[in-house]
């Protein structure tokens, strides 16, 4: 569980994070989206008690940032932007060191559990320098999970990985999501955020908006329904546009694209209107905007 109130971080004259107020309940996967230099990593560093806020409050897993820093670090896992493994040491030794530092009781058991879980058990004695980028990233994820943290911070978990490795990491995140942990993901990968996150916060020094991916699309672009007709004309568009729950309707070739409030309720009535006007409806569907469109629109306006 993460709560922040007016969390602010300044470096000399530069404000990296300004008045960030968030409430992330237990078990939620929260995506933190923003352009480079938006302050995402600074936020994660504050929430993991690596750096202290200039102003404002934050609690993580019930512990106050700045007061219970050791408790926070004990209760969270952090995947940093770069894996930062000890390249001269074996995968197993790397994890043993961190398990000891995280005060894990059954060091060997936890190390084996996560090496097996991530498919690295057979390579446990190999030095990390021989690992591919994807394998190092998996090892770094294992490191973040060794002490079974309640909250996991993942800073760009798939940055620089090839599609196969990215997919493996995403599948792994979905698996740990099932375990009910709170996951805070900083990412540029909008497709990833769309697939993994319950809610998304768009951030550019200040928090622009927070909502579920579906609601963000609705907020920014509304819900658009496309009516595919054999033959469409402007009179049919006018009929649809005249409906009290339709805010906008346009003719695009033989399709009518309408912005409709609550399409599940009003679509049947609109279809009846079209049919009543003699239109031949082939099929209808919702026009899905990509999260990228939503993000770019929001960041542009921020």
């Amino acid at each position: 569980m993460i709560t922040t109130q007016n969390l602010t971080k300044k470096f000399d004259q530069i404000t990296a994070v300004e008045n960030l107020s968030l409430d992330i309940p237990e078990g939620e996967v929260f995506g933190f989206l923003g352009p480079n230099g938006a302050g995402k990593t600074t936020t994660v560093r504050m929430l993991t008690s690596l750096i202290s806020p200039t102003k404002g409050n934050a609690t993580v897993n019930g512990f106050q940032v700045g007061e219970h820093d050791i408790d926070i670090r004990r209760s969270v896992g952090l995947l940093t932007e770069t894996p930062g493994m000890y390249d001269n040491l074996s995968a197993e030794r790397n994890l043993e060191i961190y398990a000891s530092l995280y005060e894990v009781e059954d060091v060997q058991g936890q190390v084996e559990k996560y090496l097996r879980f991530l498919g690295l058990w057979d390579r446990r004695l190999d030095v990390a320098a021989t690992f591919s980028k994807g394998m190092k990233q998996k090892l770094a994820i294992a490191r973040a999970l060794l002490h079974e943290p309640k909250t996991l911070f993942l800073d760009e978990p798939t940055a620089g990985l090839d599609p196969e490795a990215s997919r493996l990491v995403r599948e792994f995140i979905l698996e740990i999501k099932q375990q009910g942990r709170t996951i805070f993901i900083c990412t540029h990968n909008l497709d990833e955020a769309d697939r993994l996150c319950d809610r998304i916060g768009v951030f550019k020094t200040r928090l622009v908006v927070v909502d579920s991916p579906v609601n963000l699309r609705r907020q920014v672009f509304g819900r658009k329904v496309v009516f595919h007709l054999i033959q469409a004309d402007q009179s049919l568009v006018d009929k649809i546009a005249g409906h009290p729950h339709v805010s906008e309707a346009n003719l695009v070739e033989n399709k009518i694209v309408a912005t409709i409030e609550d399409p599940e309720t009003h679509n049947p009535e609109l279809i009846r209107i079209l049919v009543g006007e003699g239109a031949d409806v082939q099929f209808i569907g919702e026009l899905r905007r990509s999260l990228e469109d939503v993000y770019l629109q929001l960041v542009k306006n921020a």
Partner: peptide, 14 residues
């Protein structure tokens, strides 16, 4: 150089 200080400092070590 390894960029391993940040994960190290993220542990509950003083």
């Amino acid at each position: 150089v390894n960029r391993s200080l940040e994960p190290l400092l993220a542990t509950p070590i003083t």
